[in-house]
């Protein structure tokens, strides 16, 4: 992969090196555990900027994470949060949302947590169409546990559990989510911080189940084992290969090594949500009207 040198203006100085979105962060937990070059930090920042731009009260938002590197997000945000067992953030968010519908439930987790051990929960949540936002940071492998192959590892990808290259076809998460009935499906890379923020803002204010896939580098494990270079190199690769095509057919969004892939907003539809139908039924039983 060619590495291009590009001159860039240095980022603006921030007073005392503090994060501008500090009000949403548990600063006592910083520094975080993520590796240099990992996409998770920028992803979380985009989420916090989205919260800020919408002026959301942090007490109205709960962040639910599973296990893994992305699973740690819940531990860094200054919001009610829940760090569940492996694979279970969606069921937990479902219960929370059913019991406390006025609270926004944001699931932040990784590809292994959401699509391997938690895959069944994901497709049913998409079909159920409760107002839950699922943000999946896809780094193509299990990072925290040392780089095992996962449900999105590309064919041929080398992982500690696929030392001869991966023989299992990966999920195309966009296609999977759309097929399962998710009314909002988008994908960006962790480089697209502004677009990410906009997508998250859209998700936070819209009704129904919303899914965002964030393609992020894992320089320590997947990147190193597959000779993709440092985190920055992976980001450059994504910058060069990600092609924006809003409304593309989800079936055409496969990610193949060395080839261009599509990012953008692929599905944005209005479907009756679980909560709307539930409220209608309650109103009907009470003899009133919504």
């Amino acid at each position: 992969m060619p590495v291009k040198e590009k001159k860039q203006a240095p980022p603006p100085e921030i007073a005392q090196g503090r994060h501008p979105m500090e009000k949403y962060l548990r600063t006592d937990r910083i520094p975080h555990i993520w590796c240099a070059g990992c996409g998770l930090g920028t992803t979380v920042s985009s989420f916090l900027y989205a919260m800020d731009n919408l002026g959301l009260d942090p007490d109205s938002v709960a962040v639910i994470s599973g296990i893994g590197c992305t699973g740690r997000v819940a531990g860094y945000v200054r919001m009610d949060s829940y760090h569940t067992t492996h694979g279970r953030p969606i069921p937990f968010a479902t219960g929370l949302k059913l019991a406390k519908p006025d609270m926004k439930a944001v699931v932040f987790s990784g590809d292994g947590d959401l699509f391997a051990i938690g895959g069944n929960h994901f497709i049913h949540a998409a079909r159920r169409n409760l107002d839950i936002n699922v943000i999946c940071v896809n780094n193509l492998n299990y990072g925290m546990t040392g780089g095992q192959a996962g449900p999105t590892t590309p064919l041929g990808g080398r992982c500690t559990t696929s030392p001869y290259g991966n023989f299992e076809h990966p999920f195309n998460l966009v296609y999977l989510a759309a097929s399962a009935g998710a009314p909002y499906v988008a994908r960006w890379t962790s480089l697209d911080v502004r677009r990410l923020q906009r997508a998250i803002e859209e998700m936070l204010v819209r009704k129904g189940f919303a899914f965002l896939e964030i393609i992020a580098p894992c320089p320590t494990n997947y990147g190193r084992r597959n000779k993709l270079g440092e985190g920055l190199d992976e980001l450059r690769y994504y910058a060069e290969h990600a092609v924006i095509e809003h409304g593309a057919d989800p079936a055409d969004t496969e990610i193949l090594p060395g080839k261009d892939f599509l990012v953008g907003k692929f599905v944005d539809e209005e479907e009756p949500t679980y909560w709307e139908m539930y409220q209608d039924k309650v109103a009907e039983l009470e003899g009133g009207r919504r």
Binding site: P91, G95, L96
Partner: peptide
């Protein structure tokens, strides 16, 4: 896990 989510609430 859903029940635990509701119970948490």
């Amino acid at each position: 896990n859903m029940a635990l989510g509701a119970a948490y609430a």
